[in-house]
């Protein structure tokens, strides 16, 4: 109980209050305290990667052992991870060696770009669903969207003033309303965690 509940709650309380006070103190001692905390986060993050990799290998080796039809993806994932790591570590110029940089530039970057490019098609399909004029509000959304979209292309320049007004006033007002709620939610959640009222993140409650 001490190590699973009391100690974590105590650490959260002490560090939470300390970081809160630190935010208001610009003195170099306060800054170095924050830098120290940031460094600790990085160090813990580095160790956590080992746990992440252990999970990665465990999940994929189990899939391979089961020999189901999708296990080929697990083989590709493990071979890619080990291959890239070995080439990066053992390569002549480290991360600058030609094989590593070619694998990065001609496999990883295009794959990333492909996934990101899919977004345009997904936006089109989402827009089709969103802009169905089912009721008055949906119709207002449809009209607003058409104005904004037209105003953003070359032949719709006559709508620039209206588009600007929509983006600056109704759009910003709605966003700020949400942002105020989010800001208060973040403060309240942080205080609940610091004071030990919210403990769900420890599990079991």
């Amino acid at each position: 109980m001490l190590f699973k509940r009391t100690l974590p709650l105590l650490v959260v309380f002490v560090l939470g209050i300390a970081m809160m006070i630190q935010y208001f103190i610009p003195h170099p001692i306060s800054q170095s305290f924050k830098e120290g905390a940031d460094n600790w986060i990085r160090i813990i993050g580095a160790f956590a990667i080992v746990l992440g990799l252990a999970s990665f290998f465990h999940v994929h080796t189990r899939k391979i052992m089961r020999k189901n039809k999708d296990s080929i993806f697990s083989v590709v994932a493990i071979v890619s991870l080990i291959g890239m790591a070995l080439i990066g570590i053992l390569g002549k110029d480290g991360l600058d060696n030609w094989l590593f940089s070619n694998l990065y530039s001609y496999i990883i970057v295009p794959l990333d770009a492909t996934m990101f490019s899919l977004l345009s098609f997904y936006i089109a399909s989402a827009a089709f669903k969103a802009f169905k004029a089912r009721n008055a509000m949906a119709f207002a959304l449809l009209v607003t969207a058409i104005i904004v979209m037209l105003g953003r292309v070359s032949f719709g320049s006559f709508l620039n003033g209206l588009v600007e007004w929509i983006m600056v006033y109704p759009n910003t007002a709605a966003q700020r309303g949400i942002l105020i709620g989010i800001g208060l939610g973040i403060i309240a959640t942080s205080l609940k965690i610091i004071l030990g009222i919210e403990r769900s993140y420890l599990g079991g409650e």
Partner: peptide, 10 residues
């Protein structure tokens, strides 16, 4: 990975 370890425990 840090989120993973916490989520696993939760």
């Amino acid at each position: 990975p840090i989120v993973y370890t916490i989520v696993h425990e939760v």
